[in-house]
Simulated assay, not measured.
Amino acid sequence: MLKSIIYHVSICVLAFFMFYPVLWLIASSFKDTKDLFQNAYQLIPQKVLLSNYVEGWNGFGGISFATFFKNSFFIVIISTVAQVFSSALIAYGFGRVTFIGRKFWFVCMITTLMLPHQVIIIPQYILFGKLDWLNTFLPLIVPSFFGLPFFIFLILQFIYGLPFELDESAKIDGCGKFGIFFRIILPLIKPALITSGIFSFYWKWQDFFGPLLYLQDTKKYTVSLALKMFSDPAAVTNWGAMFAMSVLSLMPAFLIFIIFQKYLVEGISTSGLKG
């Protein structure tokens, strides 16, 4: 009993220190600027201000934060669905379809995992500029339709855990390669798909550099880029509104994790078919 108490108390203390920055952010979203800097380490605000959320939601330049959330959801949802589906299809090709040069292309795909993202920034920017895609959502969405090596590798390991007898049985019933993929493989790799979707959602939602690089019109800004606009070195920064919108920006990612957390560990473990 004593060991159990010590263990749980220690875990709670460590969890508090790990979660403290988020608690501080939430508490700061209800403080005024004076209280924020004079009582920086105090979680409970001296005066609770709900006006920070109102001012933050009103945005700036006549553009409310509803526009920025709409832009972010539009980019993230399309990119996540496209990235997960295309990665699953490519992984199925590597794992179940025999074609010339399969090992070579698989090595090329794995090699891109070790390629720093900074190396391809300039070529991509020049390419998208030639296509006249700058200041549009296309550079942030279209690449997702061609898969992501990390997700391809993750889903492929899960597919390897599925017995080939399932494919043979489907062939006997008259299924082709796409029939096997949609009717057999996709339902069985759901944990891997959800795990990939969670990671894709997180990475796209918090992406700051991509929108900063390709978007110039304020009405097309995402949430991550709009938060930076609250900080004005030449004037007074509205810290309360910035923290309030930062709290709201955390909610979609937090809800996604809460809803799909039971699939996360199962998807990463790549356990394949059970029972």
Score class of each variant (00 low, 15 high):
142 V>Q: 03
252 P>L: 07
83 Q>V: 01
144 S>Y: 00
43 L>W: 12
137 F>I: 02
78 I>F: 05
173 D>I: 09
43 L>D: 07
253 A>S: 15
148 L>K: 05
111 T>V: 13
265 V>C: 03
97 V>K: 08
272 G>R: 06
245 M>R: 05
157 Q>A: 01
267 G>H: 04
203 W>A: 07
226 A>Y: 04
72 S>R: 03
271 S>E: 13
157 Q>K: 11
36 L>Y: 12
140 L>A: 02
17 F>H: 11
41 Y>T: 15
86 S>H: 03
31 K>N: 12
205 W>H: 06
104 F>M: 13
126 I>A: 10
213 L>G: 01
57 W>R: 09
123 P>I: 06
88 A>G: 02
84 V>N: 01
81 V>W: 01
82 A>Q: 04
157 Q>I: 03
271 S>M: 12
172 I>Q: 09
96 R>K: 14
127 L>Q: 12
242 M>K: 12
165 E>D: 12
141 I>F: 08
9 V>G: 01
202 Y>K: 14
241 A>T: 05
89 L>A: 07
238 N>F: 07
267 G>T: 06
10 S>K: 10
226 A>K: 03
34 K>C: 09
73 F>L: 08
108 C>N: 09
200 S>T: 14
180 I>T: 08
255 L>F: 11
65 F>T: 03
87 S>I: 03
215 L>W: 05
75 I>Q: 02
172 I>V: 15
221 Y>C: 03
38 Q>I: 15
237 T>F: 13
94 F>Q: 06
24 W>M: 13
86 S>I: 00
3 K>A: 15
61 G>K: 07
92 Y>M: 05
57 W>L: 10
118 Q>A: 08
68 F>V: 03
98 T>C: 09
72 S>D: 01
213 L>D: 02
148 L>C: 10
218 T>A: 13
84 V>E: 01
169 S>K: 06
41 Y>A: 14
39 N>E: 15
154 L>T: 02
150 F>A: 07
4 S>F: 11
7 Y>R: 15
142 V>L: 13
2 L>N: 12
175 C>F: 14
66 A>D: 15
247 V>R: 06
170 A>C: 00
176 G>F: 06
117 H>W: 12
242 M>D: 06
50 L>G: 11
87 S>W: 00
104 F>S: 03
56 G>D: 09
237 T>W: 13
114 M>W: 11
218 T>G: 01
163 P>L: 01
194 I>R: 08
246 S>C: 06
198 I>W: 01
27 A>D: 00
55 E>I: 10
243 F>V: 00
251 M>V: 15
156 L>K: 03
68 F>Y: 15
184 I>N: 06
268 I>M: 15
119 V>L: 11
60 F>Y: 15
97 V>Y: 11
55 E>Y: 14
102 R>C: 08
138 L>M: 09
51 S>C: 10
